[in-house]
Write a protein that binds this DNA or RNA. Structure first.
Lengths: 201, 201
DNA sequence: TCTTTGTTTAACAATTTTGTCAAACAAACC
DNA sequence: GGTTTGTTTGACAAAATTGTTAAACAAAGA
């Protein structure tokens, strides 16, 4: 018998990830994905049974990976500012790979909340680590390092400044007649300045 | 003959707007929309010919309205800070009505750029007004009122801080176990603080 | 070589969604 | 009342998409 190589299975999954999360094509059909992967459409059903299973697997994997990386950063023993620095780097890496991950999760979570429940409760200690991070934020405010606000608002600001420019890229390309390269340069410059925007100086 | 009342036509369009842009259900079928509007599905085709036409009309109308309102604010003769204040108010109003408008435009613009071309070139004087606003931002930096950065980054920051919390609402509801009411309160608080976040004090 | 196991394919079936059409209907106007 | 014009409906057709099956195929081991 031939060894289970999983090569085709992996190829299909990676292609689906690219189409859904990198290119942001929510409406891609099984045929679209099969074509992009260069395989027969039936293989998609052979390995994943249905489009829905593949769709959810792709999200679950991508979000789990992101969550684990952020979890690690938040749990590190670094100084606050250094921690934020790492967080920006880690999240930027993810955004470059999957700029539409957050958008899709948000849309899906709105449509079928039950289905994605586990994605937010699956990692043990996640809630605690998040709460501790909010406390850390509060401490930094008390120390006068960052402006006074609800810690959760600081958290949202941080992610807004990182994620939004990736999601809204097509709009700003059109709006300001920018090339992809020019926009990428802008994103790189932003990366350096996000931390300084959030801290008092 | 009966007077053309357009009542049903309007009802269908408003319902589609609600489903697509307020509830964020991109996958809604013609049947879904007809059911939500309480009309026969054939009427949707009678008035709009196809799902695609309706889909595009909904976007075009919503975006055109938003663009005109922003255009007006940008063109006003108010002081810079007051102008930003107005902009936040206007954009917040739109986000409450259609939180998913920007997301959808971004996704669609990525998939079929040609189709949405006109939405960005249709308003005469739009580009100039935008350029002037960027110059205004530069002047404020020169005067030391806001931190030094590329004006376009100030622009993106402004919209990131406004729009992202609406788009990512479902994620934060889950992540921090918040009720809709609590999140709305958060959004209201943010509204007041967005301006102060962007300006030196 | 023959069997076993897993992979790939084409053809087919089922389902879902979209789009069409003719007929029924309702209101204004003669 | 009958005509006209626009509206609404159900039945039907077409298209697109998903899912299934049986058979061909390939590689490894007895």
């Amino acid at each position: 018998m031939p060894v289970k190589d999983c090569k085709t299975e992996q190829l299909i999954k990676e292609t689906a990830k690219r189409i859904f999360l990198t290119e942001g094509n929510m409406f891609a059909t099984t045929q679209d994905i099969a074509d992009a992967a260069g395989v027969n459409r039936t293989l998609l059903h052979y390995y994943f049974r249905s489009r829905d299973v593949l769709f959810n697997m792709v999200f679950k994997e991508a979000l789990t990976e992101l969550r684990e990386r952020l979890h690690e950063v938040l749990g590190s023993q670094l100084a606050f500012k250094q921690k934020i620095d790492n967080l920006v780097s880690v999240f930027y890496d993810e955004l470059i790979k999957f700029p539409y991950l957050e958008t899709f999760i948000a849309l899906q979570l709105n449509q079928e909340p039950a289905k994605y429940e586990e994605l937010f409760t699956g990692l043990p200690g996640g809630k605690e680590r998040l709460k501790n991070f909010l406390k850390e934020i509060q401490r930094e405010m008390d120390n006068g390092h960052i402006a006074e606000m609800k810690p959760i608002n600081f958290f949202i600001n941080l992610f807004a400044l990182m994620a939004y420019p990736f999601v809204a890229r097509p709009i700003y390309l059109k709006m300001f007649d920018l090339t992809d390269a020019a926009y990428n340069k802008l994103l790189t410059e932003r990366k350096k300045s996000i931390v300084s925007m959030l801290f008092k100086n």
